[in-house]
Design a protein around this nucleic acid. Structure first.
Lengths: 335, 335
DNA sequence: TTGTAAGCGTTATCAA
DNA sequence: TTGATAACGCTTACAA
């Protein structure tokens, strides 16, 4: 049982294996009646094509590689989105969490492209922002799609969100709550998304006619948020709101506030970015921005499969919308 | 370039492809000098065996399937551990996050075993605790290893931690801090680990000569922790410590305490279990138990590959030790 | 200790 | 619109 091959199906349907193959791959030149007969045989025998044989014989591997930073808080959402797209198109996914940076990162990608024979590579930030990564992918001639903005002047294959715009909306939200002294905690300068978020802050402050405050730079991790928070809370006059480039740092700022005896959101409003699982479980719940990660990943994987399937395809850059998630870490400005 | 086959290597080394194959697979019957020559040729040509061809020709797929609950907080640690083991043994990993329960879950596993031809399956809790799952794996004859205790009376293939014992240590820690009224928030009754943790609590209370208190049952999620916390804080006399079966629920209890104006750890000590990333970033940092997830997953994958490679192998159940992680959510009992 | 030849289950080529 | 038949790059008998 459960070991039917294409030959069995061909025999059962009374056709050649090539015809079965045509049906399997949705090729057009098959008469409807024949196609039906083959499909029936497939069901009757519970036939499953052997992926290894298909890979060996075909030009493709039906394999996608997903490269992302290990311990990235959105890894599982990205995986879910990609897997969804893969299932629809009969692709499989090889995940490749990665710790390296710089040359070592490039080496890993090179190795990945060489040893595992994937049809295409999907990269997420901050990997996709790494110096030389895009160039390497071109050099290796591996079709790829990145989650993150394409480089300027490069209409590249990418899926992104409107970070800058939504970041500006965050400022408008705070301004509407009466905040005037709104500080910012910047993210790691190598991550492109972080730059966009900061620009959105500046946009929002300018649009509201407010003066932007000190904007210390963190490294995206909790501790750096704590440090920046401490620094900002030492200011005089103190900010009434601190906007952070991601949730981890926002958690750090909340910790710093707690340590300084500053109550959130009574004395201080805090916002994050990403809506990681932590955000809803902090006390107070964190006002943040939710990116449609599954959708982005799904879109990216579809795009990649399209690109692989259809080599002549045009460049394609998608932008999906993020959404504000209002929780309890933001409130009216203290008087 | 980069498309050398076994034939190229054989020619370069002046041997037959069979000899190359022997070297590749570490088979013993090759003279050292020959082996060296082959290895040199492999390096010289940057030869990479074609995994698809190997799968097709061999009896194995060199593929492992990892089935886990989608959005599980330890998914990435498990993946990392498994991938490590896979790399060492030239296996690859197909991940299979899963949302189903009951019959639907069994159907997914059945489908997975049928369609993707994996050599073996790795299951993590709570999937591995699902009713009928172990039986199905036996029926399907898919070699598998579970992360979670083997069933009683079944010396099965599993890797587990000493949850019960470490849970007891948690009680000893609290007792040492002067706590006498220590309540417990139980986890989802279908998850075996949850039962063990609760038993450890009972052990610890008995050993300390304390009377166990109300132990409301949650569903492992934040909200249920909040609900149970609220309930326990309404008790009179109120517990001075609440031990939770996992971190999510502990976060919920902290939220409940905050809402009730009860300070942590001043008025109330709270502990979790799992040391998810959230635990360190809560305010206050959560005292919890860290399981060696990467190690467990690594061990499980090694075990599975051994089992697959060596069908005659004996059952094997491993137990690895968890560790207490003391943070700021526990402190001296209030007087 | 090494080599020869026959698969493994598909897709691709080319003819019918 | 269909079908022989040859790849694809390895492993596995079976010989030598």
């Amino acid at each position: 049982m459960s070991k039917a091959t294409i030959d069995d199906v061909a025999r059962e349907a009374g056709v050649s294996i090539k015809t079965v193959s045509r049906v399997l791959n949705g090729e057009p030149l098959v008469r409807d009646a024949t196609r039906d007969r083959v499909k029936q045989a497939i069901v009757a025998l519970d036939y499953r094509p052997n992926a290894s044989a298909r890979r060996l014989a075909g030009k493709r591997t039906y394999l996608l590689g997903l490269v992302y930073q290990q311990n990235s808080s959105y890894a599982s959402r990205v995986q879910a989105g990609v897997l969804d797209a893969c299932r629809d198109r009969h692709y499989e996914l090889l995940i490749h969490p990665c710790n390296e940076k710089g040359e070592a990162l490039l080496g890993e990608i090179r190795e990945l492209a060489a040893s595992r024979r994937v049809d295409g590579l999907l990269l997420t930030p901050p990997i996709s922002d790494g110096a030389g990564v895009r160039e390497l992918l071109d050099e290796l001639r591996v079709p790829s799609v990145v989650l993150s903005k394409a480089d300027e002047g490069d209409a590249g294959w990418s899926v992104d969100t409107n970070d800058r715009h939504i970041s500006r909306q965050l400022i408008e939200h705070l301004e509407g709550l009466g905040h005037r002294r709104i500080a910012y905690v910047r993210g790691h300068p190598d991550h492109k998304a972080m730059g966009n978020r900061y620009r959105g802050y500046l946009d929002g402050m300018a649009a509201a006619g407010l003066e932007s405050m000190a904007a210390p730079v963190g490294d995206n991790a909790f501790e750096s948020g704590r440090r920046c928070g401490k620094e900002l809370l030492g200011l005089n006059p103190r900010p009434t709101a601190i906007v952070c480039a991601n949730d981890h740092m926002a958690a750090g700022v909340i910790r710093a506030a707690h340590e300084a005896g500053v109550s959130v959101p009574g004395d201080l409003s805090v916002t994050g970015f990403d809506d990681i699982p932590l955000a809803g479980q902090l006390t107070p719940g964190l006002t943040t921005v939710r990116q449609p990660m599954e959708d982005m990943a799904h879109t990216a994987a579809q795009l990649l499969i399209d690109r692989v399937t259809n080599p002549g395809m045009e460049n394609n850059a998608h932008v999906l919308d993020s959404a504000l998630v209002l929780r309890d870490s933001t409130g009216p400005a203290p008087d």
